[in-house]
Design a protein around this nucleic acid. Structure first.
Lengths: 236, 236
DNA sequence: AAACTATGACTGACCAGTCAGTCATTGTCA
DNA sequence: TGACAATGACTGACTGGTCAGTCATAGTTT
């Protein structure tokens, strides 16, 4: 258990540098000279610290089991401060998830590297996904959505609209391109783009639950999967 | 927050009603002859009612947010009765999940209908799975494991040992049979049996989260997936 | 009557959210 | 520039409510 020493700021240094606040854990700061920054800036910093801490806690414990006292402690702020930035626990959670999804959404908007073959594009996309989602905290966010989605319809809706439907639409377009170019022979794949990404999602879940028991080489698995779709790759 | 009614569900036992329940319901007479059943039997009935109710609540709310008062109400017993059957909330949850998994485990043990082709076997298995898991409460249990697994390592372990590793081993055997028979051309598929079942898991998750937005024909999706693996099916 | 089972009021811990007070910072004036 | 005032970000003790788990009492069976 990461017990942050209560370090109640009573540093007996009435004059000393402005309170560094117990945040020691993740931020060696040293404030003072470097950048006291103006108020607005510091407020933004604090908000960021809260967001960071809250995500960690929500991922580790789920929505209900997360205590805002712990979030505050981890962020190095008082509990009351949280309420200067968020209305309540629930809207905080929703806002957090939304914010965390933005990078994924942006990635979907970015034009794919339309260079080589369709297979290369999909493979590049998958490698990206596995590197930046499956093996990072973003993967846990996906798991968090699966876990809490049914109790937060607003989040499930948002996720469907902004990530799932767009992602699948893009994938469908790619599949159709592959069919048109003759790279993909199974025309009906375009009806279920989910199949294309299924192993990626499996990898995310596997990492969270079973990585300890049996590591999974997600990249290699995806490659085999693509072999099924595009045919064995020539290894000239 | 949507409150699940939770009360309802006390529709008089199929057998004679005993239930003295609080205050009013003063009708402690009768019952006897018809179907009181002996003690052990009634205890088992009550236990079953508790298990049933608890599963519904856990699925709907997750572990932490589930209140044992609600479980008791839904099961038609007093809260104290729960503690006659289970040590505490946590071990109750673990036991519940374990119990709920038994049918799935048995299915994995059952010899597959080794009749026709490997494809037929896999397809039969998948149809079974989609009918009996993806579209029922069992699917929610899988989701529950994904959701709570990280906080209940014992459950994740159990699930891995009893379901995942066995299921994958069986699937791998089937794949190897398919390769030996020449039905499957991609030899490396045997290294990642996860690929074979990936769409089934996707279907489970989709049902819980997105069915409202866009229904998914899981059976048809799986068929397309099998086409990728076994080649287009002849529809002569 | 003795043994067993069920009940639900009760207890104590826990936690989301509040708010009166503190104090570093910023603004104003001489 | 230095002294003083105003601001509002921040704090954390506190409140009100919730809920897991207990146990004295009541009911049932043998």
């Amino acid at each position: 258990m990461s017990k942050i020493p209560s370090s109640t700021k009573i540093p007996a240094k009435p004059t000393g540098s402005r309170r560094v606040a117990g945040g020691a854990a993740a931020t060696p700061k040293t404030v003072a000279a470097t950048t006291p920054a103006n108020r607005a800036e510091r407020a933004a910093e604090r908000r960021a610290a809260i967001v960071e801490a809250a995500l960690d806690e929500f991922i580790a414990r789920g929505f209900t089991a997360t205590r805002l006292d712990d979030v505050a402690k981890r962020a190095g702020v008082a509990k009351g401060t949280i309420y200067l930035h968020f209305k309540d626990k629930e809207s905080m959670f929703e806002e957090l998830i939304r914010t965390a999804l933005v990078p994924m959404i942006n990635r979907l908007h970015a034009p794919p590297p339309s260079g080589g073959s369709v297979r290369d594009m999909v493979e590049g996309f998958a490698e990206n996904f596995i590197r930046e989602v499956a093996s990072t905290r973003r993967g846990d966010i996906v798991r968090l959505i699966v876990a809490e989605g049914p109790r937060f319809p607003a989040i499930a809706d948002f996720y469907y609209r902004e990530v799932v439907s767009r992602g699948l639409a893009g994938m469908r377009a790619l599949i159709e391109l592959g069919i048109a170019r003759g790279e993909i022979r199974h025309k009906s794949l375009a009806r279920f783009p989910q199949i294309m990404v299924a192993p990626a999602l499996i990898a995310v879940i596997w990492q969270s639950l079973f990585a300890r028991h049996a590591p999974l080489d997600a990249t290699e698995m995806f490659r085999v999967h693509l072999d099924l779709i595009f045919g064995e790759r020539r290894t000239t």
